[in-house]
Amino acid sequence: MLFNIQRYSLHDGPGIRTTVFLKGCPLKCWWCHNPEGISFKQELIVHHKKCIGCGSCAQVCAYNAISLGRSINSVDRKRCVLCLKCAEECPAAAIEPAGARMTAEQVFHEAAKDKVFFDQSGGGVTISGGEPLFQPEFLYTLILNLKKAGISVAVDTAGYARWSDLALVSPLTDLFLFDLKLMDGRLSRKYTGRSNKLVLENLNKLARAHGNIQIRIPLIPGINDDQDNLESIGRHVRDLGLKQASIHPYHHTGVAKYEKIGCSYKLPQIEAPVPEAINRAKDCLEQYGLTIILSEGD
């Protein structure tokens, strides 16, 4: 199950890339900007702005889950059984399924379409999520197909997965983008829903097994941008012998998606970090001999 194949992706590894987003994640980070990637099931996305108010969705819904307001549909998510008839019927694509079942072969075909750009730019395919390692067989087959076609592969993981699955794909993967958010176990449980014990164990093992790991640090004001956290990330990464990390400043673009899939956004209103704060974080991490990339967006 995946929820997007994004072409011309510039911030998920080197060069021009296509990013495949697998659906479903064991973590529930408060700031997640791809909330439609969290659930392992299909969901309904409603783009209110696209609705032309024709009422087709309400007509076709056998469960009376859709009521038609003033050109704005609202979906009663409790009644909805995700039959997706409404999405099929909606002429404006205002209702869309989040999540599609595709075979690894189909995904490969789609992801390989930009090979000419990968070759030209030193790019490739990044498999992200959700948590890609939660669909290990699919992931393995997809990577295998891509590698056979001569395409470079990056896996973007939050590290919360079975080591055996990570070990399975590690030899085929050219680059790991490994998220590190919070070093404190208690805070980690609070803000991501899980302890970071497994994540750190996996990172430690992976650092020994794989030569190309880039640490990705989302920078969330008031949550993980304090000196203590950044320093312990820096220290930990340095001690593992890793050289590179990237900082991904929090942005608001994901907020609107929560409403579209009928979820509430947990994170209180916070501002995106100011450039000084980003530079402070960069300076802090650089103390540990790391090369820091500032991501311009992702």
Partner: peptide, 17 residues
Amino acid sequence: LLEGEKGLSSLSHLIRS
């Protein structure tokens, strides 16, 4: 989308491709 070093090199890569 074209900012920075990455933006510039990606533009060249698009053209070459």
